[in-house]
């Protein structure tokens, strides 16, 4: 296992540090965990593509030495999907924020999940629109304060993993920037998973979420994650009252009985070329 210093030296593009994230922002921890996972899985740089949307976390793609794209707000999944269709051999890792993925790109999320296309989606969930200065997202907890919810949000938030699983995602997992070894572990499993995998990385935004919600000290946001994240095995034994305000971490669902989309498409090509259902122009 390489040290974190070696991983940074190997996988960061030259002269990209310090990164642009705010002091105490958890995005660097998530990106570090991703590099650990990619390295531990033994993936060659040339065989990895990292495609992101728009937002604070989506800037991550520009820092790392793979085939990378920082695309449009909400559209990381369609572009990843097209790339995976053209190059099924690539490990396509999609990075998206909570707003990017669940609001403006929400339709793409449910359909990528439904198709079970072999992408690894990492959702950096900092519960807020950070880049634009602290507006509420569909993953902002109800009752939180945001610049566009000065009287507190009245909108319930999504459980994005339950949403993805209901839509057909065959691998869902969650970890936090406090639970780094678990985050690395679920990222590795998500990368290895053949169909569509989604990993929610709960991360802190001290600047734009914390300051508005009495969690301004970065370390306090990690302490909050420590107190509220519960391992799946323990979570399963808790009653509803014990679960109140907490969330499960680890691999939450996994199934291997469904065919991955690009593999299923290969059968379409076979069928078309067999002549049986092929018609002339």
């Amino acid at each position: 296992m390489k040290s974190m210093e070696e991983l940074v030296n190997e996988y960061f593009r030259p002269n990209r540090l310090p990164h642009l994230w705010c002091p105490g922002c958890g995005n660097g921890v998530v990106l570090g965990a991703l590099l650990k996972a990619i390295d531990a899985e033994g993936l060659a740089k040339d065989d990895v593509a990292v495609i992101s949307g728009i937002g604070c976390s989506s800037r991550a793609s520009g820092y790392v030495d793979f085939n990378t794209g920082n695309t449009l707000h909400g559209r990381a999944l369609p572009i990843s999907t097209g790339l995976k269709m053209a190059r099924p051999d690539l490990n396509v890792i999609t990075l998206s924020g909570d707003g990017d993925c669940s609001a403006i790109g929400g339709n793409h999320l449910i359909h990528a999940a439904r198709r079970n296309i072999g992408l690894t989606l990492v959702v950096f969930n900092n519960s807020i629109y950070g880049m634009t200065g602290g507006q509420y997202s569909p993953l902002t907890p109800q009752g939180a304060r945001a610049t566009t919810a000065p009287y507190l949000t009245i909108e319930p938030s999504f459980d994005i993993l339950a949403l993805a699983e209901a839509a057909g995602a065959t691998f869902t997992a969650r970890a936090t920037t406090y639970h780094v070894p678990i985050l690395v572990d679920v990222l590795r499993k998500g990368i290895r998973h053949e169909g569509f995998s989604i990993i929610e990385a709960v991360t802190g935004c001290p600047t734009n979420f914390g300051r508005q919600n009495k969690l301004a000290a970065p370390a306090m946001m990690m302490e909050w994650q420590k107190e509220h994240g519960v391992m799946k095995a323990a979570w399963d034994k808790m009653d509803p009252a014990q679960r109140e305000g907490k969330f499960p971490i680890g691999v939450l669902s996994e199934r291997t009985d469904l065919k991955e989309y690009t593999k299923a498409y290969d059968e379409i090509i076979e069928r078309a070329q067999s002549g049986k259902e092929a018609a002339s122009a």
Partner: peptide
Amino acid sequence: CEMRCPDYAIF
């Protein structure tokens, strides 16, 4: 410290 540093500033 290394594991939690978001800035890769301490090893």
